[in-house]
């Protein structure tokens, strides 16, 4: 295939667009050819890379808060945690969470309370069957329940001793994808083999 050597202006524009990931595969191949052993081209490429990086390293400025509306999520947060939001609303909430420290922090608090409630032992053994709302309430209610609590404690003891039914509900897949997602935010991570499934023997 005949190789077309672009004029210097077009060559530079190709390099620049290459750095931005904006080339077609055919153009990418041209760039690769141009860089192959041509020291002048490589020098130009590196200079453009440096300029691009310098602009991208400009610190991101915080927008003065008074310019933005106070549109926090309120009760949508609980619905979000419980998976009760329909798709569009769910996406609005997630988009908001990405940018809003206050709502993230509130979400976190709600999540902790929710986890505390969910991890109560033996609750389904109580006569009322009602879940207390916060951990502080659980102590009081348990001992108001008196003999029911004693029965629950025995059941719990058996459960703990035998060790069944209290397995954490996650897989290594869950853990692995979370680690990979977090690690991929570090500089350079994405150049590494990030994640894959291996058929183990």
């Amino acid at each position: 295939m005949a190789r077309v050597i672009p004029d210097p202006e077009r060559r530079g524009a190709l390099f620049s667009a290459y750095l931005d990931g904006q080339l077609t595969p055919a153009e990418v191949a041209v760039v690769s050819d141009l860089l192959d052993g041509d020291t002048e081209a490589i020098a130009e490429f590196r200079a453009l890379m440096g300029v691009r990086r310098a602009v991208r390293l400009l610190p991101e400025l915080e927008v003065p808060p008074h310019l933005l509306p106070d549109g926090h999520l309120g009760d949508r947060l609980s619905a979000y945690l419980d998976g009760e939001l329909v798709t569009l609303e769910h996406r609005r909430v997630t988009h908001h969470l990405v940018d809003c420290v206050d709502c993230r922090s509130e979400l976190h608090e709600l999540d902790r309370a929710r986890i505390a409630v969910r991890s109560l032992p033996g609750v389904d053994m109580t006569a009322t069957g009602e879940m207390p709302a916060v951990p502080a309430a659980r102590f009081r209610r348990r001992f108001v329940a008196g003999s029911v609590a004693a029965a629950a404690a025995v059941a719990l003891f058996v459960g703990l001793t035998v060790g069944g039914g209290d397995q954490p509900a996650f897989s290594l897949d869950d853990l692995g994808s979370r680690h990979v997602a977090r690690a991929s935010a570090e500089p350079g991570f994405a150049v590494l083999p990030p994640s894959m499934e291996v058929a183990l023997p």
Binding site: V98, S177, A190, L192, P194, S195, M196, E197
Partner: peptide, 28 residues
């Protein structure tokens, strides 16, 4: 980086991971 390791495909970067065959991906 998109990765194809035979039985799984994943795309990872910028605090996100998308993986075919799992319901979710994660974002940091």
């Amino acid at each position: 980086e998109s990765v194809d390791a035979g039985s799984v495909n994943a795309m990872v970067g910028a605090g996100r991971m998308y993986m075919d065959g799992l319901d979710d991906a994660a974002i940091s």
